[in-house]
Design a protein around this nucleic acid. Structure first.
Lengths: 155, 155
DNA sequence: CCGGTTAGTTTGCCTTACGCTAATATTTCG
DNA sequence: CGAAATATTAGCGTAAGGCAAACTAACCGG
């Protein structure tokens, strides 16, 4: 185990503790989601893909097109997605998140931000600067990671 | 807007970008969860509370005791929770996560760790040290926050 | 233009899960 | 001992997902 590995392990342990503290916040939007798991999975999938055709979505979710029609019907009725004819191929129904759908996913993904902000507010300017530097470092590494290797694993 | 606020805003924006990149990882365990939302909410609730009586759990979830009996039946059958008689009051059924239940919740809460570890591996030792320092700073602030004010908002 | 293929929808059927009320049995406690 | 509390069972209803089969509209190549 290299010294880099040790530091990484320590960082990840800290991250886990942080995550556990966030999870203790009972105001998580997760508890107020009133969708089924399949519906939520579909919303996340649409977020990942920026919208898909109906056939493709059925395939991604591993269900029949008939089933997907029903599910999308209900998501449209709930105003979380839109279903539109594809201009290039009128057979295809493009399914996309609405702003409300986006909001719901964002809310789940950014749960705990208030809590985090509150914790950051406790820090001095010097401390905040260290945290900000660390964030810059991580962003750069993330950008490199995406430029270098996520293309093949993207799909 | 103070200069602290500006730095905090920048940190949170970075955090959001980071989160979005993690969400793009299709290997998220979320997609392989085959529980209903209500079941998952109950597992998270049990994690938060470390186990509860049946009546309490029904109340927390806002359903009748009869309904909760059925749901817990199914979670017991799936080996995610145990149900035991409370030694202090034999009317009460204490419901708790099993190790498998814990694992499932942990998996969801720590999703993306591999991805994060990979990104951290790209950093030099100096850079990692900055990130580790930042993490220390955050942990200290978190500890202070918990010592200071989470008691009243805990419930 | 036509025939074969593709994409999506409808219909009908089935299964699972949740949710409730009412009734019941056991346990607790004043 | 009786009333209240806890959990379970039975019965009923609704919603959602899931499939196969049939159907319609659209696409595309010969």
């Amino acid at each position: 185990m290299t010294s880099k590995d040790l530091v990484i392990a320590r960082i990840m342990a800290g991250q886990r503790r942080f995550q556990a503290a966030m999870a203790r916040d009972r105001s998580s939007p997760f508890f107020s989601v009133n969708l089924t798991m399949q519906q939520l999975k579909i919303l996340f999938t649409l977020r990942l893909h920026g919208g898909t055709g109906g056939q493709e979505l059925a395939h991604l979710m591993g269900v029949s097109p008939a089933t997907m029609t029903g599910i999308v019907d209900r998501l449209v009725a709930a105003h979380y997605v839109t279903r539109r004819e594809d201009p290039q191929d009128r057979r295809v129904r493009r399914v996309q998140l609405t702003p409300a759908g986006d909001e719901l996913i964002d809310g789940l993904m950014t749960a705990g931000e208030e809590h985090q902000t509150r914790i950051l507010s406790r820090l001095s300017v010097d401390e905040l600067t260290v945290v900000a530097d660390a964030m810059e470092i991580m962003q750069r590494a993330l950008a490199e990671d995406e430029a270098a290797g996520t293309e093949p694993s993207r799909h």
